[in-house]
Nucleic acid binder design. Structure first.
Ligand SMILES: [Mn+2]
Ligand SMILES: [Mn+2]
Ligand SMILES: [Mn+2]
Ligand SMILES: [Mn+2]
Lengths: 219, 219
DNA sequence: ATTTATTTTTAGACAAACCTAAAAAATAAT
DNA sequence: ATTATTTTTTAGGTTTGTCTAAAAATAAAT
């Protein structure tokens, strides 16, 4: 099957709102897709007719098995393009999303397989999110919040729970990105800020608000 | 201004039918865009309202100055992506067109500038067609048909006047592509076929029908 | 110069994706 | 248990891009 750009955007939005696990509300979809609830209802009917979601009026919607498959494919394309933009075209990691939002709809399977190969089969996008393979499988890391990383334990930044522009800007300024080696030197009980060391930079302190949105994995 | 995928396809089609020089007929457009003449008329009215073409009923249409600008931009994107697909993702030169037809509509100026840079500012696409630079300028070579290349004159394949699948297939089989060094060893007056030498392959003969569609440049 | 054939445009419809305003259902508050 | 609030759906419209069938204009043939 081949889906329209709009249909694909809806399916991905449902997936991103955890619609493969819990039901997603009409309003939540309207919010993230920047459209009106009435328009969402229209589309939900169409997606239900195509058996991509299960949907009963007033009950929210969730992805069907087929819907999850389609969603994972769109997510795969999105994240591979993000990786390409960051790695090859040297886009900043806060710029890649908007462009990938368009590129993800180019529907040549061969293009995506070749791109994947060309990029060396990356498993994580520039935001640390896992890239599904051609079968939809993706690797998950056991991640901890930076605030919970034990002292003097070498770890790597592997994800973010806040991907807002403000957050990305702060991290760029601090020269922290996905893959950056990090180690906690000291924790301050008063405001829960942490003193960290990255690569060969001098020690510096990061606030609790920021640190709790930075995910790391170690060992 | 930002144009829809359909508008862009029409503008590029008009350009490819030499609509910056001669008027293009409604039927010719319908033919190349695989649509109906009535639909073309509708779109021509819209493009005229946006001042991208000059159009009087029953007189055909041609691109305005602004229309040419827009067309060159689309052609630039199309050919840069073709180059990327052939050069980096190792697509065959007969496969690149269809995918580029979709990629050309992704509308991030920064993406295109970065891609151009990443590719090393190529000046010709895999079919030998010139790639407009960011100002719309493109390089033209003084080309001759292979049939008209003088004997024993080293030259390079630089273009095709027939880009049909059949033609591209034949050339791939003969291992001829854009940039291939070629030299004529002998011409046969009877059927105007030519015996040529490419790179370190043994001599072989090519028919007049094929040779007349292969453009080369020398010296 | 008519007639015939071709090309192009108009008229009227349709599907996709969106909208506003009003009605209905589900929740929350008294 | 009513009443009030929020959420969701329906009803009816709009825009974009397409279509078929019929009419009009142009070009070609007698
Ligand atoms: Mn998108
Ligand atoms: Mn991402
Ligand atoms: Mn196109
Ligand atoms: Mn080309």
């Amino acid at each position: 099957m081949n889906y329209s750009v709009s249909e694909e955007n809806y399916i991905k939005a449902i997936y991103n709102l955890n619609g493969n696990k819990q039901p997603v509300s009409t309003n939540a979809l309207a919010e993230t897709l920047d459209t009106k609830p009435a328009s969402v209802t229209d589309m939900l009917k169409k997606l239900k007719a195509k058996k991509l979601i299960v949907y009963q009026p007033y009950q929210g919607c969730r992805l069907s098995a087929e819907g999850v498959k389609v969603a994972l494919n769109i997510v795969r394309r999105h994240r591979l393009w993000e990786y390409f933009l960051a790695e090859k075209l040297k886009f900043e990691w806060n710029e890649v999303h908007a462009v990938a939002e368009e590129l993800e709809h180019v529907s040549s399977p061969k293009l995506i397989e070749r791109l994947d190969e060309y990029l060396g089969f990356p498993r994580f996008d520039p935001h640390g999110d896992p890239i599904p393979d051609h079968e939809g499988k993706m690797q998950t890391l056991k991640q901890v919040k930076l605030t919970q990383l034990p002292l003097h334990t070498p770890a790597k930044v592997s994800g973010l729970t806040d991907q807002s522009t403000d957050m990305l800007e702060l991290l760029r300024h601090r020269r922290i990105s996905i893959g950056t080696a990090v180690e906690i030197n000291r924790k301050f009980g008063f405001d829960h800020s942490v003193e960290i060391k990255i690569q060969d930079n001098p020690l510096f302190i990061i606030s609790e608000q920021a640190a709790q949105h930075i995910l790391v994995h170690h060992e």
